[in-house]
């Protein structure tokens, strides 16, 4: 059964994997300004991210996210490891993963796409661009495209 997530009455579940509290709050603030009813779940390291996605304790009752916003530079398990886990798992690999990181490094970009990241966005340095990036994610991934529902 396929339908646009925006038609759903339930909020869009987003998983943000990010260890910088400043970025977490900023993302929350910018999403708050947006139009889409969403629910932002936050974990601050790679291991928790994998536990969240696989419903492993203490995340046994976690929702299935519609979208993952993934930083690369994370404690314990790196963002690329989390990405690999998602994209090689039959029940998770359909979830769009947006790599959202401060790294411009060519090898990070290549590795992310080789592991089937859905897109790679470098965190813009000023608020205007940051807002625009989050809005673009919203517009494209949460309203334009159709994602598989549960």
């Amino acid at each position: 059964m396929v339908k646009s997530v925006i038609e759903s009455l339930n909020p869009i579940e987003i998983l943000l994997v990010e260890d910088n509290p400043g970025d977490i709050r900023l993302t929350q603030e910018v999403l708050k300004e947006g139009q889409i009813c969403n629910h932002l779940n936050v974990v601050d390291d790679g291991e928790k991210a994998i536990a969240f996605l696989t419903h492993t304790a203490p995340y046994s009752h976690a929702p299935n996210p519609h979208l993952v916003l993934l930083d690369l530079n994370l404690p314990r398990r790196s963002g690329l490891e989390v990405l690999e886990t998602i994209k090689t798992n039959e029940t998770l690999k359909h979830i769009p993963v947006i790599v959202f990181t401060s790294s411009h490094a060519e090898e990070d970009i290549m590795s992310a796409y080789n592991l089937h990241a859905n897109c790679y966005i470098t965190k813009p340095i000023d608020l205007e661009h940051f807002t625009r990036s989050i809005k673009s994610i919203e517009d494209f991934w949460l309203s334009m495209v159709e994602l598989p529902s549960e």
């Binding site: 400043g22 900023l26 000023d126």
Partner: peptide, 9 residues
């Protein structure tokens, strides 16, 4: 980025 973004916010 934090300084700039939050000042701008």
């Amino acid at each position: 980025r934090m300084v700039t973004s939050y000042l701008q916010l």
